[in-house]
């Protein structure tokens, strides 16, 4: 049965006969889809099986031998890439659709096994000696190449993470926050460089219309890393004179991202920019209150928090209304 309102709309002439028939047909033949459920079981099966087999092999490494395992991994990786290069569509600057549903997963399998192969061979045989930079450089370059050639966002994410690794970091936002290793000027500097590099990469993809849809991934990592590095720099250099420089960086970044996300209609970047930027405002308020060191200043500070908070909420509501109708995210 089609929903009742369609009948009314049809009588009023808002819905055409053809559309009404289609709606009727659709709602008469509703199929119950088990797509996500079955896909979840499939994923779970792959995960359990690979986990179980991995552990089994690990426990029996003495009888199997490293060469056999390495050869196995290499075989899996090579055959995945062989399959993908046979099926891949010609390269284009724009988004290229994957030729079939399993393509993306096969490619992912190939990339993951390739990286494990590189890691394994370095760990077991020390191919590059203690030159870890070189050991991570090659997989990273390969990943960037694969991401662009085969147009795969997941592998791009892997490549970005390994770029960070190569620069000597662990960069996924979760780890960034949970390890909290911001105890030296060099680390903060590296993070900052890395973040800015990603932001520039995101900017360039859009500017030169080269794989524009990659911008989201570059910006996602870039925004978090840069903001966190800037704030870390601010607190690390607190009261040393250079701290305000970092705060100025926050303001500049916020301004850039604000206009950029308005232009690209991205709710996600809008919200995180507003939140990170507001944290900067809070830092400023606290700083101003500290200058006076009195009970009144404290109350005024809280009042300032309150009012700025209300203002920001209203701003966010207005912004999202403004962007409404274009993009739900």
């Amino acid at each position: 049965m089609e929903p009742e309102f369609y009948r009314q709309l049809h009588e009023q002439g808002i819905i055409s006969d053809a559309s009404f028939e289609k709606v009727k047909h659709k709602h008469q033949n509703v199929l119950f889809s088990l797509h996500w459920e079955l896909k979840t079981i499939l994923y779970l099966g792959v995960t359990l099986l690979s986990g179980g087999l991995g552990t089994l092999i690990y426990k029996n490494i003495d009888t199997i031998g490293h060469q056999v395992i390495l050869a196995l991994i290499a075989l899996v990786s090579a055959s995945s890439f062989f399959y993908c290069s046979k099926h891949v569509l010609p390269f284009s600057k724009d988004k290229v659709a994957s030729p079939n549903t399993s393509f993306d997963y096969v490619l992912l399998l190939g990339a993951i096994t390739m990286v494990s192969f590189a890691g394994y061979i370095q760990y077991q045989y020390n191919i590059f000696g203690n030159n870890y930079g070189l050991a991570t450089l090659f997989p990273m370059l390969a990943l960037f190449y694969i991401a662009h050639r085969f147009d795969h966002l997941g592998i791009l994410s892997m490549a970005i993470v390994s770029l960070g690794l190569w620069m000597g970091l662990t960069v996924t936002p979760k780890k960034l926050l949970s390890y909290g290793t911001f105890n030296s000027q060099t680390i903060i500097g590296t993070y900052l460089t890395f973040g800015v590099l990603l932001l520039i990469a995101g900017f360039l993809t859009q500017r030169y219309d080269f794989k524009k849809h990659f911008k989201f991934s570059y910006h996602h990592y870039g925004v978090h890393v840069t903001y966190i590095a800037l704030y870390a720099g601010y607190f690390y250099n607190y009261q040393k004179g250079t701290d305000l420089l970092f705060l100025a960086g926050v303001i500049a970044l916020t301004a850039y991202l604000y206009f950029d996300s308005l232009k690209t209609l991205s709710y996600y970047f809008m919200v995180i920019t507003v939140l990170y930027g507001y944290f900067g405002v809070c830092c400023l308020i606290v700083r101003l209150c500290m200058l006076f060191q009195s009970g009144e200043a404290f109350s005024v500070g809280i009042l300032a928090f309150l009012l700025s908070g209300v203002g920001l909420i209203l701003l966010l509501i207005e912004l999202s209304k403004k962007m409404r109708g274009h993009d739900r995210f």
């Binding site: 990286v115 870890y132 991570t136 997989p139 994410s157 892997m158 993470v161």
Partner: peptide, 8 residues
């Protein structure tokens, strides 16, 4: 997948 990576 970041775990399956390089060798720090």
């Amino acid at each position: 997948a970041a775990h399956a990576h390089g060798s720090p």
